[in-house]
Computed example of a mutant assay.
Amino acid sequence: MVNIGPNIQLPDFPLLLAPMEDVSDPPFRAVCKANGADLMYTEFISSEGLIRAAAKSRKKLDVFDYERPIGIQLFGSDVETMGECAAISTEAGPDLIDINYGCPVKQVACRGAGAALLQDIPKMVAMTAAVVRHTHLPVTVKTRLGWDEGTKNVEEVAERLQDVGIAALTVHGRTRAQLYKGDADWRLIASIKNNPRIHIPIFGNGDITTPEKALEYKNRYGVDGVMVGRASIGYPWIFREIKHYVATGTLLAPPTLEERVAMCQMHFDRSVEWKGPRVGIFEMRRHYAHYFRGLEGAKAWRTRLVEAETPEAVYEIMAEIARSEAVLVGA
């Protein structure tokens, strides 16, 4: 078992769903949980937005019992504001609070938040300590190797954040300068895990795209678990596939066309339920290409789904897809 605080016990080698902006909302988390994700996080939430009571930020605090254990992820640039937002987030009833020190996008980093804190370790430590003080829940952190190739300081970061009370650390094996380009480098993640001073769980993130790679990285780098991000978009089955491969060394058959349609419809239903028909239908459109990637005639089906304006129209198109006996290339 992997322990994150007294009330969060995860299985050996847990699989985490990465927090992804405009992706990992409750509907998406529902399909990932149904396929074996062990720990999930909200989309990252702006501390300034919470303080202003911005509707979008407040909506992201929604968590549900079927998601547990679930963490609320915060980002911000002001130490005291982050502390206050940890208290606000605690009232929403998550199982833990996570701090984002890894987001590389300009809109976040150029405001002194996310990966920008990798350039100011004392401030990062002070901010983390403030969050720990303002909640009774376990606090975890997600970060990167460093700001750029010349400042890979994550080993120092791990020790100092553990010293102020974090319960677990997830490291994405790229610098901020890399964004999402090139291969993730897990060697420093392994160094943290092998550091005798480190006693908290260490999770690795970056390039976990197949069951084979998950097991390879488990064995090679010794991490306590892995976080899966982009590979789960439109393919939540990756969690069950990794679990099966780690346990048995054999690969599960890929989802059938009927399974793809059923999972996409579950996602759609949750989207409409949580967001309402208009927004739910609109925001679901970004997912169709992923669910039906490799499907014969996928472009035509996707066009029709994107143009559908009512739940009834979407259901009818999905039923047609299921009846079509279209070939899944590579399945």
Score class of each variant (00 low, 15 high):
residue 16 L to S: 01
residue 318 M to K: 04
residue 250 T to V: 14
residue 23 V to E: 00
residue 294 G to W: 12
residue 68 R to Q: 05
residue 228 V to R: 01
residue 158 A to G: 09
residue 82 M to Y: 08
residue 91 E to R: 15
residue 246 V to I: 15
residue 309 E to V: 14
residue 166 I to R: 00
residue 151 T to V: 12
residue 135 T to N: 06
residue 288 Y to S: 05
residue 92 A to Q: 08
residue 198 I to K: 08
residue 20 M to E: 01
residue 316 E to C: 05
residue 105 V to C: 05
residue 182 G to P: 13
residue 53 A to G: 14
residue 100 N to G: 03
residue 21 E to T: 15
residue 165 G to A: 01
residue 93 G to Y: 14
residue 20 M to N: 01
residue 10 L to D: 01
residue 290 H to G: 01
residue 92 A to W: 09
residue 134 H to F: 15
residue 233 I to R: 03
residue 41 Y to F: 13
residue 97 I to G: 06
residue 110 C to G: 11
residue 210 T to Y: 09
residue 38 D to Y: 06
residue 43 E to L: 07
residue 110 C to Q: 14
residue 288 Y to F: 15
residue 71 G to V: 06
residue 197 R to K: 15
residue 284 M to T: 03
residue 171 V to C: 05
residue 254 P to F: 06
residue 260 R to Y: 07
residue 108 V to A: 00
residue 146 G to P: 15
residue 37 A to T: 08
residue 132 V to P: 07
residue 250 T to P: 01
residue 225 G to H: 03
residue 313 A to H: 12
residue 217 Y to P: 01
residue 193 K to M: 11
residue 307 E to A: 13
residue 79 V to I: 15
residue 22 D to G: 07
residue 23 V to R: 00
residue 113 A to L: 06
residue 112 G to D: 00
residue 148 D to W: 06
residue 244 H to I: 14
residue 268 F to C: 01
residue 185 D to G: 03
residue 232 S to D: 04
residue 273 E to D: 07
residue 143 T to V: 12
residue 199 H to M: 12
residue 252 L to H: 04
residue 85 C to I: 09
residue 159 E to H: 03
residue 301 W to E: 05
residue 26 P to N: 12
residue 132 V to Q: 02
residue 139 V to N: 02
residue 206 G to H: 05
residue 98 D to N: 13
residue 90 T to N: 10
residue 30 A to G: 01
residue 51 I to E: 09
residue 135 T to R: 04
residue 278 R to E: 14
residue 82 M to S: 02
residue 283 E to Q: 08
residue 237 W to I: 08
residue 201 P to R: 08
residue 11 P to G: 05
residue 164 V to G: 00
residue 25 D to S: 08
residue 210 T to L: 09
residue 163 D to C: 03
residue 311 P to H: 08
residue 141 V to L: 02
residue 295 L to C: 03
residue 125 V to Y: 13
residue 129 A to C: 10
residue 116 A to L: 00
residue 133 R to S: 13
residue 330 G to A: 04
residue 246 V to H: 08
residue 261 V to S: 04
residue 231 A to L: 13
residue 331 A to W: 08
residue 302 R to M: 10
residue 236 P to G: 03
residue 57 S to Y: 09
residue 256 T to K: 10
residue 52 R to D: 11
residue 193 K to Q: 13
residue 172 H to E: 10
residue 203 F to H: 02
residue 196 P to S: 11
residue 194 N to Y: 03
residue 213 K to H: 09
residue 188 L to C: 07
residue 25 D to W: 07
residue 46 S to Q: 06
residue 20 M to K: 01
residue 42 T to N: 06
residue 28 F to C: 07
residue 208 I to T: 15
residue 80 E to S: 09
residue 174 R to D: 04
residue 278 R to W: 14
residue 145 L to V: 15
residue 302 R to K: 14
residue 222 G to T: 06
residue 169 L to W: 02
residue 271 S to R: 05
